[in-house]
Write a protein that binds this DNA or RNA. Structure first.
Length: 797
RNA sequence: GGGCUCGUAGAUCAGCGGUAGAUCAUCCCCCUGGCACGGGGAAGGCCGCGGGUUCAAAUCCCGCCGAGUCCA
């Protein structure tokens, strides 16, 4: 991905590539590996490699080998880069060492390694480059998707004379050997090529640049086809984010050179070429994303425009800080800002280290992870616990021997870790909570409060010590376990139903099965509609009613993948050579959880809620079996309670609620009006208000016990009459409003402040209108009595 | 997984502790033979939801919900 800027320019960089390779496993004699002896090693490998090249008609004299020490993934060894005419065509890695803290060889990655008794040859070839080399086209792009390039050049309307075509061809050939790291290098390289061809640099640029963009467009399209075809959903996190970035870059490039075909068509050309079956979904995803991008841009444009106008008024350039903010929070590229700003005649202070400034905003906040390996060590000496819950998932009782009991002081309630030789208790894992239950000897019974898996050992956390060496009878809390099993099987069913309704791209992004409900996060590119929820619920329950068998089967990993594909790993990729496959009717998944035997046992599935947990991920919450019944009953009770309050039947609740809400709003408005009228009546009637003369202006000090709104209205009405208003209320503590007409030299904020202090509060506001108050309602009269004096003081200043 | 931004009238947004606003759209009136424009007016707001701070919260703080964006 770091070469993304090179795509299209050098003629050889592609964003996605297909890696070919072959391996040989050599094992020293006397080891007990399946393979023993040497298959082939360095010399033979190079010989095979050259034979391979020869078949392509390569002049072996032009092959260059560069040997270097390689390390990665915990292994190391010598490696050869095979280069033909400046192009790296293959890498041959010879792994002979493994990471070992006590190893005698220290390599350049800072780790120590020691020799292994296996030696592995691992070769790799980029398919695209071989295709290119064998085709002899000017660039790799014309070799791997020629019709796409043709479509694009035609769409953009590029036509070359023979002479021009020759220049482009030669330039492409030369640039293929370049490794360009930044923009300066591109220009330097271009000058070099122009010199070599005897062509003016500007002319070369004019000829080549549109083509470079076309190559990039074709390649970005292909990358997107790979990503979306493989089921990646654009999002603001993870690989989904990469997909979004590629798409937006593609959109900018396509608009830049004026490709008239819509993006989903470009991606579809590549998706078809790559043989994807889910092309309709891919197109839909692209269209949705393009629309989102368009909205983001429109939003950004408005934002930049108002910003540009603001800085235009001040006559200063837009500062770098604003640029960083625009990019980081709103996704607006600096060049977009410059473009819009220049239309408003504003400069932009674009810093050279722009992306460094962005990075600065992201530093820190790195969450550190504390690994508690102490637990692990405590149990490593114990033998693997035999897991009975896989043998018969419906059995809830078993007998076992206590192998070890470790007292814990750091946990409240669960004071002992008990390890048995075998157990029926399911430890927390795969999104399924731990079983609860009891362990009993003849003398005592202890509660199992939690069960965890530590390495190969199942640890039961209990509130008592059953005694090491004792035989115990274990009893699982049946109700709890059954709920988990129903929810677990329901999860497979809902996932399958969601796939049928929403599309083949649906992948599990996480799941949690609880006692009262369960949830499944799936990757999806838009919110799930109500209709889709209904459809998923119906399909899920159809599968429940079909009462299909739920079977488990242990299969060799390779065999399982061959038979069912990689989609079995919805819940993550398990360890070990054997995988446990759970077949739920038409759905097959690798899963370590406990399940019911027939889908009918799930009882019923009720979808409770859907939410967008993040962009590109939708969370489905649901309940199964008795939990589903309980959930429905809860909802019904709420509806019944609501209907009861409204005094109507449940069926009438929606329209009644709407009517009430409308009426409530209308009444609020009417009250507002009446208050206004009341205030005016009071002000003009002058009831119980004390009128004070203030150097020719009259001021009214009045008490009326109402809310703030009434005070304001009354004060405003008095000001209309040209009077200074001081209005007080003791309805809720003590509150004041002071309003002053234009041209009267009284500071309302000041007056309110002084009044409010007398009731133990504060207040303030602009000079012509202020409000305030305090908790001491008793002191209101006293404060109002002092108002005339305060007003005079104010005038005196 | 982490950071940042935004939720205010039907739409786009301003206000960022002290009386909820602008523009467009809507409706009415005026201008004109009619339309575009122009002029005048009206209607339209749980200021996303819930807590907290404060005399006072659209505004500050916390939580939730929703939208967006950048980085790994």
């Amino acid at each position: 991905m770091q070469d993304i800027d090179n795509v299209g320019k050098t003629g050889r960089h592609t964003m996605a590539f297909e890696m070919m390779g072959h391996h040989a496993f050599n094992a020293d004699e006397g080891t007990d590996y399946a393979y023993e002896g040497e298959v082939y090693w360095k010399e033979e490998c190079v010989a095979y490699c050259e034979g391979f090249f020869e078949r392509f008609g390569v002049d072996l004299e032009e092959l260059v080998y560069i040997e270097y020490p390689w390390c990665g993934g915990g292994n190391a060894g010598p490696a050869l880069e095979v280069i033909y005419r400046g192009l790296e065509l293959a890498t041959l890695v010879f792994m002979s060492m493994e990471r070992d803290p006590d190893g005698e060889y220290e390599l350049h990655d800072g780790n120590s390694y020691s020799l292994m008794d296996r030696r592995i040859v691992d070769t790799g070839y980029g398919l695209e480059r071989w295709t290119w080399m064998s085709q002899g086209t000017p660039t790799v792009y014309e070799a791997i998707y020629p019709e796409m390039i043709d479509t694009l050049t035609e769409s953009v309307g590029i036509e070359h004379t023979e002479e021009e075509a020759a220049i482009v061809h030669d330039a492409a050939r030369l640039s293929g050997t370049l490794d360009i790291d930044d923009v300066d290098d591109v220009e330097a390289a271009r000058a070099e090529i122009a010199g070599e061809l005897g062509v003016d640099v500007d002319r070369l640029r004019a000829l080549v640049e549109p083509l470079e963009d076309i190559y990039a467009i074709a390649d970005h399209s292909r990358t997107l086809a790979y990503m979306l075809g493989d089921g990646i959903v654009p999002s603001n996190v993870g690989t989904g984010y990469l997909a979004r970035m590629v798409l937006r870059r593609l959109k900018r490039l396509a608009d830049g050179v004026g490709v008239d075909a819509p993006l989903d068509e470009l991606v579809d050309i590549q998706a078809e070429r790559l043989g994807y079956q889910n092309r309709d979904t891919v197109r839909e995803v692209v269209r949705t994303e393009v629309e989102k991008y368009r909205e983001t841009l429109a939003r950004g444009e408005r934002r930049v425009e108002s910003l540009a106008e603001e800085y235009a008024r001040e006559g200063v350039p837009i500062p770098a800080g604003e640029l960083v903010e625009l990019y980081d929070s709103h996704g607006i590229q600096p060049d977009t800002v410059e473009e819009i700003a220049s239309e408003h005649g504003v400069d932009v202070a674009a810093p050279d280290d722009f992306y460094a400034l962005v990075a600065d905003r992201h530093e820190g906040g790195q969450a550190e992870e504390t690994v508690d390996s102490e637990d692990e060590r405590r149990f490593t000496d114990l033998p693997e616990t035999d897991r009975l819950y896989y043998e018969d998932q419906s059995r809830m009782e078993f007998e076992a021997m206590v192998l070890a009991v470790i007292e814990r002081e750091d946990r409240e309630g669960a004071d002992y870790d008990v390890v048995l030789d075998q157990t029926m208790f399911y430890p927390e894992g795969g999104g399924q909570p731990a079983d609860h239950g009891t362990l009993s000897t003849d003398d005592l019974t202890v509660d199992v409060l939690d069960v965890q898996q530590v390495g190969d050992v199942v640890v039961h956390r209990t509130d008592g010590d059953p005694g090491t060496g004792e035989f115990v009878r274990g009893t699982i809390d049946r109700e709890r376990r059954m709920r988990h099993m129903r929810h677990h099987t329901a999860t497979h069913i809902v996932g399958h139903a969601a796939r049928q309704v929403l599309g083949e791209h649906i992948r599990q992004a996480g799941a949690q099965k609880g006692t009262d409900s369960a949830r499944l996060d799936v990757q999806h590119y838009e919110s799930v509609t109500e209709e889709e929820v209904t459809a998923i619920e119906r399909r899920a329950n159809n599968l429940v009613m079909a009462d299909e068998r739920v079977t488990q089967e242990w299969l060799d990993r390779n065999e399982a993948e061959k038979r069912h594909g990689f989609d079995i790993y919805q819940g993550g990729i398990p360890e070990g050579e054997q995988v446990r496959l759970i077949q739920t009717g038409p759905d097959t998944q690798a899963c370590g959880g406990t399940h019911v035997s027939y889908t009918g046992e799930v009882g019923t599935i009720k979808l409770l809620n859907t939410e967008r947990v993040q962009d590109g991920v939708v969370r489905l919450s649901y309940a199964a079996g008795e939990a589903a019944i309980e959930a429905v009953q809860r909802t019904e009770r709420r509806l019944a309670a609501t209907a009861d309050v409204l005094d109507v039947s449940p069926a009438e609740v929606p329209e009644t609620a709407e009517r009430f809400f409308e009426e409530w709003k209308a009444r609020g408005k009417r009250i507002e009006q009446l208050k206004e009228e009341l205030a005016q009546a009071r002000a003009s009637g002058g009831d119980d208000g004390e009128e004070v003369d203030l150097d020719g202006t009259s001021a009214v000090v009045q008490r009326l016990d109402g809310d703030m709104e009434q005070l304001r209205a009354t004060a405003n009405a008095l000001v209309e009459e040209g009077k200074v208003a001081v209005v007080g209320s003791a309805a809720d503590g003590a509150q004041f409003v002071v309003a002053v007409p234009d041209g009267v030299a009284v500071d309302a904020g000041d007056v309110v402040g002084k009044l409010a202090r007398r009731v133990g509060g504060g207040g303030g506001g602009p000079p012509e209108f202020a409000q305030g108050g305090g908790p001491d309602g008793e002191a209101l009269e006293e404060a109002l009595a002092e108002a005339p004096e305060i007003l005079h003081e104010g005038l005196g200043d």
